[in-house]
Design a binder for these strands. Structure first.
Lengths: 324, 324
DNA sequence: TTCTTCAATAACAACGTTGTTATTATATTG
DNA sequence: CAATATAATAACAACGTTGTTATTGAAGAA
């Protein structure tokens, strides 16, 4: 690929003049500029960003560490971040490797900032501790912990709480929870039960991970009882959709026999066989705040930023009043 | 962030010795190595990849251009590529911008190779033409065109053909097609009809794009007729799932009243309210071949590679014999 | 004319590496 | 003891840029 030095030879001037011409500097005669630009065009010159970033000390890149590819939530978010950061002259670079490995490579590439989706608290904590003393600013999006780095918190506890409240107000007195792998959500569930004077029954919390199958299995394996919950809350979009599938297969009509609310608000929720009522952070707001905070960090060198987003409830067909 | 020059000062030697020590060169005394390594560790030294790649002329990066974030197929594929290329010492860098823009940035970053998912033929053609004369090798994955670049073809026509054949053998004589935006697939459909002696009826091809809603709307808006098709083929996983949703809503039982086959083989197909029979390229094979071809291009400088993968049929519940 | 001013360009240093070549100091040989 | 081989390190060039400083040549002022 042609370099400014080669263009200089062709144009019969020095490479520093070429550099200035390509950057449209007023120090170069119009005629020279034209000649240089014409040659650059002709030979398909592309500036070498590695070199430019090396000398400038800024990479204009933001590293995005992405682990959970199967969750469409992140695909949506990533897409928006891409578009929004580009407006500010930054490129998003994504990696799907384990956090430690990804952050290490990003630091070697001298990215200006790092974004980490911190819904797995353990990883968020570990990574933020590791990077807190270092020179690459880290923004953790979606954690609930108090971290030693910049954080865009999502108040999942409040989200689940709101879901319980919604069901309670409709008359549900026996509410189950599917997927116990995220402690904050479970805490929101338990606190709400307590506040509304409902007993916490161990059997109503169906344990399992965050994948579709986990929700499916949880409901399929649920023992048939007379007094099982009249409503369930699924801990994320995948689990909830898996659960819905299982209810349908077992012939338990939603919402006639059982109501279902899922955490995460996504187009997919409306596409389910029964459109799902959901609580989740407004995606657009998450994206906007992420960009806003990162720009404050990069441009103003802001310290220890923190902001919290509250999930919002979207009512759809999957929830009704309990049968008498 | 500390550099080798600063380490040199601290260690009391020249920066070139530090460089060698960090690369474990046999030209450096063990004692010196230890001292340098200890200081590097202490100060959290990370090599500057920008500088290293500038001098080496190799970036060890492969650019992946990703447009259709909503299709989970690509999320799965991307994940596998990440893992597999890492074994070969390459990092995948992803961008979600429009192809022209993304490829331009990647070239400026001097990536060693580019991968483009070419299911939108128009984009694939345009990009491959643009890059065919340039020095950055482009591998188009999943196109059907004869392109002037390396290509891992997916024979979608054969896939759809196989779907029609499968239905025909079960006794279906009236087969519809949902989503007409990919010409190859439509061609497979038409050719198969012809070969099996079935008439092509305009009304049996429901037009629309590749999103969930397109499939949903197509079926919702389909006029109620006595002699409508006894089976449908959806042009991708989203469209098919949207269509299934619509059938369910309209009370048209799948597979009792109508059979449904979807293009794309993904876990999601099995998760649908009626597990969907599908034809699609084996993902793992696509990933493996992608890596294999790219490595041949990068290491052996292979010219004009081409390989074709045939989609495979997976039978599930959504297909049955037509009602008498 | 001779000095100054200014526009245009050239030259150079720097960014952080790697790889090659040059320079030491030390050990080995005859 | 000088000559030479060897080990360790230093010095330097290069990669492709950008930004700063130095050098030109020509026009305008004294």
């Amino acid at each position: 690929m042609i370099t400014i030095k080669e263009i200089a030879k062709l144009a019969g001037c020095s490479f520093s003049t070429v550099s200035k011409a390509l950057n449209d500097s007023p120090l170069v005669k119009e005629e020279t500029k034209r000649k240089v630009l014409q040659i650059a065009e002709q030979y398909g010159y592309r500036r070498n960003l590695l070199a430019r970033q090396l000398v400038s000390g800024k990479s204009q890149m933001i590293g995005l560490i992405w682990q959970d590819v199967n969750n469409p939530l992140y695909a949506q978010l990533a897409m928006r971040l891409f578009q929004m950061f580009q407006v500010h002259g930054y490129e998003i670079v994504m990696m799907m490797s384990p956090p430690e490995q990804a952050s290490d490579w990003f630091r070697q590439m001298r990215v200006d900032g790092l974004i980490f989706w911190g819904d797995v608290e353990e990883h968020a904590l570990q990574l933020s501790k590791r990077l807190s003393t270092l020179d690459t600013p880290l923004l953790v999006v979606g954690s609930n912990l108090h971290l030693p780095v910049h954080a865009l918190q999502i108040d999942r506890k409040a989200g689940i709480y709101a879901a319980v409240e919604h069901l309670f107000k409709l008359g549900h007195r026996r509410i189950g929870f599917i997927g116990d792998s995220q402690e904050v959500k479970l805490r929101g569930y338990k606190e709400a039960l307590l506040d509304f004077g409902l007993p916490l029954r161990q059997g109503d919390v169906l344990s399992g991970g965050l994948a579709w199958e986990d929700g499916y299995k949880a409901i399929m394996q649920m023992p048939e009882q007379d007094d099982s919950p009249s409503a369930f809350i699924g801990s994320n979009n995948l689990v909830t959709r898996g659960a819905l599938r299982a209810f349908t297969e077992r012939g338990i009509a939603v919402p006639d026999k059982v109501s279902l609310i899922g955490y995460d608000e996504l187009p997919e929720m409306a596409y389910a066989e029964v459109p799902l009522t959901s609580v989740g952070p407004p995606l657009e707001e998450v994206a906007e705040r992420t960009v806003e905070m990162m720009m404050q960090i990069l441009q103003d060198g802001a310290e220890h930023l923190s902001h919290t987003i509250k999930p919002v409830l979207h009512t759809r067909r999957s929830v009704g009043a309990p049968r008498a």
